[in-house]
Design a protein around this nucleic acid. Structure first.
Lengths: 207, 207
DNA sequence: GTCTATAGTCTGATAGAC
DNA sequence: GTCTATCAGACTATAGAC
């Protein structure tokens, strides 16, 4: 019944399935080789489609990459968004750390896709970093500053605290190969959870 | 006078200069786009040489990349090698953190070259990670374990402590664009040094 | 919707003049 | 040592049959 001129056509089941397969394949390939280093051949093969058929669903290589990145950005910020100013400060921050580590465990490819984009100078998300991301971080940094001023957590540089949480959690996804090479059989995430919990508890608990 | 059959020919001044220019250009390009995403055209242009002339100095794209990586690996481990078992534990570890952060400040491109290689699954350094790197880390982890057992530092998981030092220091090189997008004018490394110093002091000082 | 065929461009590497 | 010219293969994307 809704018939606006710009109404997006509903997708058939097969369209939905193929689009999903392409995005999953694109994530796999782009997250490993970056945009420039990935080819449509690789993605098509991983998706189980021919190259022209792949281009029937997406107009270009850029379009696949763009869809992955934009879909990712908000998801990536969710764990920080969930940190509440009216909660108990130390548990709120530890909860953020745990959620972020869980993202690395559940979505390592997404983490690497993002890492690749940043490493290459963030040509496609620079604007979002300086806008959306900076705004959220600045707001949450203000919350953290307030907690510190009230003596509810130790006195730390709020921005660097947030950077350190990104760094420590994403490292287990982005440098997975290196960590497993050093650790051998031991599961990285088991130890990471305990280690990060202790680290931030000590860092944040006021003297 | 030395005339062993396998003596490497000495390089002329111009050869030395051009080889250096190529390696510098290669570092610039490979560290941004990774191996697959980089082209000889980009490197030649950055080095101020024609593509065939570049291939007069190095036999292939692979060869340039390989020389950069092998030259890098030992340098990259130096800060950890310098950590002495017979020193004062907390200052030894803090010194390691400072040296590693200084590497990120001085050699961000080298850090990103390495990050790109790991992100792509470490196809060219996997063996070195499982050998040279693992051996060094295991040895230093044993030192840290000893310090903890003697009550000279807090009880921490040695491997995850080392991972956290890598992660936190390299983050300022690898994610430089993102950090500057959020921080604005503020110098990242100034704040980082103070923050990391405080973080590891709290983490390591025994209760 | 999916395929084969192919256009047009880029890329790594070589040949050969100077 | 450096260049122009160029090859063979890979790359993104399109045309057109079915």
């Amino acid at each position: 019944m809704s018939a606006f001129p710009a109404d997006p056509k509903p997708l058939t089941r097969i369209q939905t399935k193929n689009r999903a397969a392409i995005l999953d394949a694109g994530l796999e390939v782009f997250s490993t080789f970056g945009f420039r280093g990935s080819t449509l051949d690789q993605i098509a093969r991983a998706a189980g489609l021919s190259k022209p058929n792949l281009l029937y669903y997406f107009p270009s290589k850029e379009a696949i990459h763009a869809e992955l990145l934009t879909g990712l950005l908000s998801t990536w910020l969710d764990p920080l968004t969930l940190m509440r100013a009216d909660g108990d400060p130390v548990p709120e921050l530890l909860g953020y750390v745990r959620r972020k580590l869980e993202m690395s465990r559940q979505f390592p490819r997404e983490s690497r896709l993002f890492a690749n984009e940043i490493l290459q100078g963030a040509p496609r998300v620079k604007a979002a970093l300086e806008g959306e991301l900076k705004d959220l971080v600045d707001a949450k940094a203000e919350v953290i500053r307030g907690w510190a001023a009230a003596g509810k957590i130790a006195d730390v540089h709020p921005h660097h605290l947030i950077f350190s949480i990104w760094s420590l959690t994403q490292h287990y996804a982005d440098f997975d190969v290196q960590i497993r090479a050093v650790l051998g059989e031991e599961d990285p995430f088991e130890g990471a959870e305990a280690y990060l919990d202790a680290l931030f508890t000590k860092m944040l608990t006021p003297a």
